[in-house]
Amino acid sequence: MLSVFHPVKKLLKRAPVCVDNTLFRLHYNYTFIILTIFSLLSTSYQYFGRPIQCIVDNPSLAGVIETYCWISTTFTIPSRMTGVVGRDLIQPGVMGHIEGEDAVKHHKYYQWVPFALCFQAMLFYIPRHLWKTWEGGRIKMLATDLIMPTEEKDKRMKMLITYFQDNLLRNNFYALKFYICELLNFVNVIAQIYFMEYFLDGQFSTYGIDVLQFMEMESEIRDDPLSRVFPKMTKCTFHQYGPSGSVQKFDSMCVLPLNVINEKIFIFLWFWFLMLFILNVLWLLYRTLVVFYPTLRLYLLRCRARTSSSQDIGYICKKCLIGDWFLLYQLSKNIDPLIFKEFIIELANHLSGKHNV
């Protein structure tokens, strides 16, 4: 089964240069990988059996009925979800019913689960692709030969200081593009939750809460949300013409083995998306404070460059706008701390004019 996940292995490699942050990576890296793995799992029929298996009276029609029930829909009876299995019902939602009197719920989402998960994975990667395009390799270009001490350090240091001086007060748009991508991550999480809600016929928003409440109820009266949203056994009605031209009805029960995996996938995604939503709300509050409070930016840069002089960092921050601070903060993630300390000293001297004295 490890061969199924082999293509995902390459996605686990960390980039040598960091141009974003941990929350950003939660979206385009971890969530993207999780959704990709889940998409592969939902298509791994060789490990979980055929996607649908139906019980029919006529064995010669078994293949036809299974194919028909898979490409059309199966259904359950919502009013027969509770009771003792084997006495009150066969399985939750599966029991004899009268057409036209008992309401039925049709299930057709299972055909689209792999495609939906793959589509979601791509949506989570879009802000990352957009930021890589906008960023254009600037941090990699500036931090080259400064990630670790090298013989080219002094030459690269002068180039970096010259670049920063020449572009001082011109980096706001660079930071703005990154903040737009962070906002897109938040919007994407909300859109994904609404997409799941639509995909599961309005049952995703309360899915996790229903599962937690279900565990505390009595077995005979509790309505299993796992079986309601992802039934393992359903019913299917197939019609064909008989020898005399009359319509014959075949009412079969169908087992959906993959729903054992689907129910775990979507309960995990419910909690994962909830976590992403909460983290993004907190992060946007943090980002708002960063944008509007220069004192916080000064504190963050000091924490990032602890070996550097607080006075030098304070002087540089007074000369910088939000975009310049953002560029410095990104560089501090990718430059060796000792080299970054030297860079801060030289940059402060250049900005104050001491270097020319």
Rank of each mutant, 00 (worst) to 15 (best):
H6G: 05
R14N: 14
N29P: 03
Y30N: 10
V56I: 06
D57L: 03
I65E: 14
T67V: 06
C69Q: 12
R87G: 01
D88N: 01
L89T: 10
H97E: 13
A103M: 14
H107Y: 10
K108N: 12
W112E: 15
P114G: 05
A116F: 15
L117P: 08
C118D: 07
C118N: 07
H129P: 08
G137M: 05
M148I: 09
M148H: 14
D154E: 13
M157G: 11
Y163E: 07
F164G: 03
F164L: 15
A175N: 00
L176E: 09
I180F: 13
I180A: 07
M196G: 14
F199C: 01
F204R: 00
T206R: 11
F214L: 05
E216L: 01
I221A: 12
I221F: 14
L226M: 15
L226T: 14
V229S: 10
K235T: 07
F238A: 04
G245I: 10
F250L: 15
D251Y: 06
V255W: 13
L256T: 01
P257R: 01
N259A: 08
N259D: 04
F266C: 13
R287P: 03
R287T: 13
L296V: 08
L296T: 06
R302Q: 04
D312Y: 01
G314N: 00
K318E: 06
K319V: 12
C320H: 14
I322M: 07
I322W: 13
F326P: 12
F326N: 12
L327K: 13
Q330K: 04
Q330N: 02
P337C: 03
I339E: 02
F340D: 01
G353S: 08
H355F: 05
H355L: 00
N356K: 06
